[in-house]
């Protein structure tokens, strides 16, 4: 398909979005990232049955935490797509990048 997506997106591979813990997302923000999104399988199609559903709940929880600390819950999001939907992967990467650009850099960004 030779699709392109914004080069600012760093992909961290996990076996399932169910592996993504609240602390993993928080640590990413501590390291200075501007936003985090999870690209999970379509709901109802998790190989591990409920991994992506759990991930969605954790993302919702982290949104609350980020609001509490003043970073804003919009900096984290959950998206769903199947392995064959490269188009959607690129589209969500674009969408999230645009959203984060509007929000601006993370206020906890480490100095260069």
């Amino acid at each position: 398909m030779r699709l392109s997506y914004p080069g600012n997106v760093k992909v961290v591979k996990v076996p399932c979005t169910g592996r993504v813990d609240v602390l993993l997302i928080l640590r990413a923000f501590e390291s200075g990232v501007d936003g985090v999104y999870l690209a999970g399988c379509l709901e109802g199609e998790c190989h591990f049955l409920r991994g992506n559903l759990r991930a969605r709940r954790r993302v919702e929880y982290v949104k609350g935490l980020l609001e509490e600390v003043g970073l804003g819950g919009n900096r984290v999001e959950m998206f769903n797509m199947s392995a064959s939907q490269g188009q959607r992967f690129a589209q969500f990467a674009q969408e999230m990048t645009e959203r984060i650009r509007l929000l601006g850099p993370s206020p906890v960004k480490k100095g260069e």
């Binding site: 609240v22 602390l23 935490l65 600390v69 970073l71 206020p107």
Partner: peptide, 17 residues
């Protein structure tokens, strides 16, 4: 230990900000 990690992370994010 896990909740300690979460609150510590929140404090670090807030104070760094």
């Amino acid at each position: 230990e896990r909740e300690v990690g979460v609150l510590a992370s929140e404090l670090r994010l807030y104070w760094t900000k």
